[in-house]
Structures are given as structure tokens and as C-alpha cells.
Amino acid sequence: MKILVTAKRVEDPESKIKVKADGSGIVQEGLKYKMNPFDEIAVEEGLRLTAKHGGEVVVVSIGPKDVQEQLRHALAMGAARAVWVNHPGPLDPMGAAGLLQKVVEKEKPDLCILGKQSIDDDQGQTGQYLAEWLGWSQGTFASKLDSLESEAEKAKAPAIELSADGKTLQVVREVDSGLATLACSLPAVVTTDLRLNQPRYASLPGIMKAKNKPIEELTPAGLGVDVGLQVEVLRMSPPPPRKAGVKVGDVQELFQKLKNEAKVL
């Protein structure tokens, strides 16, 4: 089974995001970067599937040279090789899906696994655009039926099940008020929710091996994709400031304030 997974470079979810005074973007100084947490789950699921069924995981990232850090991290986790689409400028979901579509046509994987969203622009669209443009089945927000404390998780079993004939994936999806199960014919696009697995750490031997694994460089022009922005961010602003709060002395005072001042009870 050949699986293509994504590894977007994003701001560390623990870092404090500040908007530039002119609203043109966020303050980059002092920020740390890492792989989008949802993509890390995608890489992990790909590795578990190939460990069980054979095959290889190919990781792709789009961005400036710096994204090679995230590709190396995925390689250290166990991906076989990497594809870097060299694009230093901004990108929207249509651009990302367009580039991924070309990479898919070149690599011909059986399955693409993407994070359900990236924690920077929070659009949550790329996997679905990709599935539609490829004409493939989509299983979004994939989740594990068992808890992340379960024996299956401890045994690093994949949550996505491949049918005996190898033609269909069973994907459990976290949806409103329950879990929906889909049978997705391969090839398919799956996007990951948080509760799919707990990604592994890269081991020291893994990190050493990753240094010699190949990273292929591609460009939007070479792939023939116009990445002109269709979603244009005009300006960014911080969320409306919250008015200074008060500390209350006791529960009665809190209750009265919630009831009579905030009127939320």
C-alpha cells in the first residue's frame, strides 16, 4: 500500500500569536514552528497502516526551504521519502489541493491522509477539495472507535481498517452527536481528527536514518499549477479585547452577578 501524507509547517500551538500593528500578518519574531498536529496524526496512521499491510509512506510539504524540517521529522518517524513543493509565498486551500492533486497524479498512491485542518488558517478544506478533484472517496475527521487508552492503541494498531480484499477502507468519523462509519473504496482521501491515534516520537536511530532519506524538490510551475490566491486575506486583527474582569468574594456574589449583571442564568 502506498500512502501519501501531508506535513504542513505551522506555528507551535503553544506559542502566543500576535497580530502586527498594521494588520498585515502575525508577528513572526520569537515563534517556534512544528508540524501541524493533525498532520502528525496523519503520518502516524500512515506508518501503522504500512506496518500492518506493507508498502511505504511518502510525505509531502508545501512551503519555503524551512519545511524541510517538518519533512525530516516525518522521515525520522518512519516515512520512506519526502516530496517538497518549493513555494515560499502564501497559499490557500485551492492552491494546496491543486498542488497535491499533481503530486498524487505523479506518485499514484492508494491513499492520501491529511490533517483535517491546519492550526494556522483553520480552513479545513484541502482534503475535501483534493478528493473531489481526484474524483476519490473521502473520509473526513477519522477517529478511533476505541479510546486512546485502549490496548489497540498501545499496540499501535491502525484505526483505519483495510478490508480483506484490500479494496476498501473502513473509516470511523467523529460527527455531531455520534460516530459514523463509512466504507471508502480505494483510492481515497482521509483526513484525521485528534482522536485517531497518539503519534510516536522520532527515535534517535530514526533521526539518524532520516538524514539520508531523499527529499525530492518540485515547484508549482513545474507541476503546472497556478497558485494565485482565491482567498485573499485583506487584514488581520486581534479578537475584540475582553473588558477587565472582576474577582468576586463569594459564591452568592458570583450568582447575583451572573443573574443580574451578565444575565446569563
Binding site: E11, P13, K16, I17, V19, I26, I119, D120, D121, D122, L229, Q230, V231, E232, V233, L234, R235, M236, S237, P238, P239, P240
Partner: peptide, 15 residues
């Protein structure tokens, strides 16, 4: 919202 609401953005869709 972007960055889980740490940023509010105004966007235009060009299609």
C-alpha cells in the same frame, strides 16, 4: 477566525 481565534481576519473570495 484563524489560529483558533487568536486572530480575526477579513477575507475576500475572488471566485
Amino acid at each position: 477566525p484563524m489560529w483558533a481565534g487568536a486572530v480575526i481576519s477579513d477575507v475576500k473570495l475572488k471566485t
